[in-house]
């Protein structure tokens, strides 16, 4: 079914108005549910608001629904109930044709999809610019900048299989950054990394946030959550069980003696 042009134009204008004029929230979720089968739901009745420029950790045990939550934000998971607005895009009613537009205005580090294996580090990062039709000059200036931010400039001609996992994660972060998105999402960016490397990545995330970009990170890494002391949203069985503006990984509110 093809929708008439004027409806599309109206919708685009409305989205622009929502984003620019009304200065809406970065993320606006109301009563969001994701149901995989009749008795199991990955998320149930989640309500969450994230303002521009915030830094949010999503924590919780395996299977709590953190990845599902992020997938809703970049509309990989589209079998959803409730209201979801991300940067003014209305996710549930979104036409598949408009999905690339949504994904270009955010940067995502995926839990299970890494780099393109047969492209070099430079090409992988540049790819995110190619996709939006960037010119040669733009690619030459923005790509090294992003690689520099994650400290991977010296390996720009390497292929992903020649890199360690931590280095690959950095390149994935650079790829997510290179478009200068206003929303940055990372799913387990420090999974399987040693504490020092994790802290390195955490400080990169902090740098990204300090430029005004909204950052949302799903993680199991107690270490970095406790070190950064940012907003912590804890999930369990698909529900938000805690939302702490300067939280720690664990529920105990009492400061632990160190």
């Amino acid at each position: 079914m093809i929708e008439p042009h004027w409806i599309r134009i109206f919708r685009i204008v409305k989205q622009l108005a929502d984003r620019r004029l009304l200065n809406l929230r970065m993320i606006d979720l109301k009563d969001l549910s994701v149901v995989y089968s009749e008795n199991r739901s990955a998320l149930s009745h989640v309500t969450l608001h994230v303002e521009k420029g915030e830094f949010v950790f999503l924590v919780g045990p395996t299977g709590a629904g953190k990845s599902t939550m992020l997938k809703v934000l970049y509309r990989e998971e589209c079998d959803i109930q409730g209201m979801v607005k991300v940067m003014g895009f209305d996710i549930p009613s979104m036409h598949p044709r408009d999905v690339p537009k949504l994904r270009r205005s955010m940067g995502v580090v995926f839990q299970d999809f890494g780099l393109l294996p047969n492209k070099t580090v430079f090409e992988n990062v540049a790819f995110a610019l190619r996709v939006i039709g960037a010119g040669r000059r733009e690619i030459r200036s923005k790509t090294p900048e992003a690689l520099d931010m994650v400290g991977m400039t010296h390996r720009c001609d390497a292929f992903p299989n020649q890199l360690s996992w931590g280095e690959q994660q950095r390149v994935a972060i650079a790829r997510a950054l290179v478009n200068r998105p206003s929303l940055f999402i990372a799913d387990e960016p420090t999974g399987n990394l040693d504490p020092d490397t994790s802290m390195g990545i955490a400080s990169i995330l902090e740098d990204i946030n300090s430029t005004g970009t909204t950052v949302i990170v799903a993680t199991h890494d107690k270490h970095i959550v406790d070190a950064l002391r940012k907003r912590v949203v804890a999930f369990n069985h698909g529900c938000i069980v805690r939302d702490d503006p300067n939280g720690r990984y664990d529920i105990e509110e009492k400061p632990q003696v160190s």
Binding site: Y74, P100, R103, F113, P117, R175
Partner: peptide
């Protein structure tokens, strides 16, 4: 198919 998936996730259009 994995490559195609990654392209989609970084916002490549179907045409691209």
């Amino acid at each position: 198919r994995r490559e195609i998936r990654i392209m989609q996730l970084v916002g490549a259009t179907s045409r691209f």
